[in-house]
Amino acid sequence: MTLDEIDRKLLRLLQADANTPLDRLGEAVHLSRNACWRRIKALESAGIITGRVTVLDPEKIGLGLTVFILIRTNAHAPDWLDRFRKATRSMPEILGVYRMSGDLDYLLRAQVADMKDYDRLYQALIQRVPLSDVSASFVMEQIKETAQLPL
């Protein structure tokens, strides 16, 4: 699917607020409510819109510590990777898992309550899959966080 300027504007608006009413979206892009709805459905069918979420304030729900977990491993076999994927995907505290180039093998982003909660997460992870080197960096100040892609 090729995106035109109307699609891009709709996507910008929806990224800012997925609950924007169709009437307001239509006004913003100069389309009828139905034409807007059809475009959004086409964007969903094409896999461009993959979901809609409500963004929460982690501190207000008791998860005020963001941690980046840096992992190096000596295991690179497919069965190890399958175990690692299953383990990290099953742990709700882990919000992102990235296989990296360079010296670092994996980078994980997790949201936990505090250091004790991070230690619980760490212990659970190493029980599920063997890791050769794990270190963590704790976020002291979040300067920017967004899920909005530049369009």
Rank of each mutant, 00 (worst) to 15 (best):
A113W: 03
V97R: 02
I94E: 12
K144I: 10
L43W: 10
Q111P: 01
D17T: 03
D103Q: 07
T73W: 00
A77G: 13
A35N: 09
F138N: 09
L151M: 12
L107C: 06
D105F: 00
K41H: 12
A75R: 14
V134K: 00
T50C: 01
L95E: 13
M1P: 10
G96K: 14
I48R: 11
A124M: 08
P78D: 09
D114S: 12
D114M: 07
T146P: 02
L10T: 04
M140N: 08
K116C: 03
S90K: 14
T54C: 03
L95F: 05
A110W: 05
L95D: 03
A110I: 06
V134Y: 00
Y106C: 01
T54H: 12
K86S: 15
L149H: 03
F138I: 15
E27W: 02
L63M: 09
Y106A: 06
D82L: 15
R99I: 00
R39F: 09
A124I: 05
E59G: 10
L43H: 06
A87H: 07
I143N: 03
L22Y: 15
V129W: 13
L107T: 01
G26D: 03
V134N: 00
V112E: 04
I69E: 04
S32E: 04
L10G: 08
L10Y: 02
H30T: 04
F68N: 14
S90C: 07
R99G: 06
D119H: 14
Q111N: 10
G47W: 08
R38P: 01
Y118N: 08
A113H: 14
R52W: 06
K86C: 07
A28L: 07
I94H: 09
L25N: 08
D103G: 09
S132L: 00
G64K: 12
K9C: 01
L22N: 11
W37S: 14
A46V: 01
A77F: 10
W37L: 14
R12S: 15
R52M: 05
L3E: 10
M115E: 15
A28P: 01
L65S: 08
